[in-house]
Design a binder for these strands. Structure first.
Lengths: 220, 220
DNA sequence: AGGTGTCGTTGATGTAGATCAATCACCGGA
DNA sequence: TCCGGTGATTGATCTACATCAACGACACCT
């Protein structure tokens, strides 16, 4: 439970009470947590692993909205149906709450509600930053800022380190950045040729962070 | 005050109390409400008019995140600085609250907090839908889905009607959709040629909504 | 009325990234 | 061991949209 990001807003008694409402779920790779347009009956909290959250167009084009990591909240929706789909990249452990019982629990706990607002704000900020990438950055800038952003998120949950794991496939990165696999692959190769990164199976090493930051268009 | 979207969560006494914290502000066209990276000291609620919310890259590329309309909340941020800039498109009337005093007021009013969570969820959903446009839709689809979405938002606040006002300039639409002015203009012209819309200064009429919906890629 | 600035539109041309296609590495199963 | 499937990479070609350029319609000022 200690990885549950909203727990900071709860005391020991409350934590115990919340634990009563929690169901622990483990998912195999590629398993679906929920699908777009399904009725949302549960919230989820990521305990371990990585998920992709995505929307599909009728002709099966896909936009990956983001990747969820431990501590992230899933299914916070203002409408009864899920607005997007979510599935597991590799094995994933989740905490599941019924929407109803969680709502009852949270209803009269302002500190918890404030924490949720704060998390929603953070998520919105990430979405906005991503809109900049999708709308106004070149392929190189998209890939570079993705790598920097991914590294920062991982360090934010204490998973920082020399090697940067990339559990998602190239196609996922492409569908996240509004590019094709080929362009993502070419950009990775180019970065490696230029000594910015080193590519391994399922991970990269950021050899030249300042360079990557420049390429990402964060700095002038 | 009645247009304040969060008011539904308050009783008459509370409304009165909140009114004490409110400062009414009027802005001329092009006036800035707040700028990216400025310290956020206030929340705003749009009372009348339209605003653009945008992020700038160092080289002055711009991504318009969205347009704010009456009832919308501005400045809900998880960090002390504003994450984006906001300025007026035409004359705008706002309600301003100091962040601090609003926080104190909201702190122990769970119903209000829930309302804010709901609004944040709605905003996040809009952002996600927009990511699909930016990442995976063609220029035509972007423009068509923008028109449909704009119409729906206006009807949602009781401003629906035959003619669809577009207070923002073509450049704003371009920076919103990740296109250039020229492409937006060409697409508008094409739609008009094909009898989908009729163009006027500052507005359009949607002549063929089903067609526009098809073009937007919402339907097959 | 003439001058100046902004905005929208249209045309000609260029290019970043998509599409099409082939190859290679890797893995799990027969 | 061979074989089929998936993912990553690279090359050749194509195209949607950007870029560059020009012009017309207004609005505002003097």
């Amino acid at each position: 439970m200690r990885s549950f990001a909203i727990c900071g807003a709860l005391d020991t008694t409350e934590l115990h009470e919340l634990a009563q409402l929690t169901r622990h779920v483990c998912l195999e790779s590629e398993a679906t947590v929920f699908a777009q347009a399904n009725i949302a009956t549960s919230f989820f909290n990521v305990h371990e692993g990585t998920l992709r959250q995505y929307k599909l167009l009728p002709d099966s084009r896909r936009q990956i909205l983001g990747f969820a990591l431990p501590g992230d909240f899933l299914g916070l929706s203002s409408v009864p149906q899920h607005e997007f789909s979510a599935d597991a990249i590799g094995r994933v452990a989740l905490c599941q709450f019924s929407k109803e019982s969680f709502a009852t629990f949270a209803e009269n706990r302002p500190r918890l509600l404030c924490r949720i607002i704060e998390m929603a704000g953070r998520e919105l900020a990430r979405a906005q930053e991503h809109m900049v990438s999708l709308g106004r950055r070149s392929a190189e800038e998209k890939v570079a800022s993705f790598l920097i952003g991914w590294r920062d998120r991982l360090s934010g949950i204490g998973r920082g380190g020399e090697i940067l794991p990339l559990p998602m496939r190239r196609l996922d990165i492409a569908d996240h950045l509004g590019l094709t696999v080929e362009t993502v692959s070419r950009t990775f190769s180019k970065f490696e040729r230029n000594g910015v990164i080193q590519i391994f199976a399922g991970s990269v090493v950021l050899l030249d962070v300042p360079r990557a930051e420049t390429l990402s268009g964060i700095v002038d």
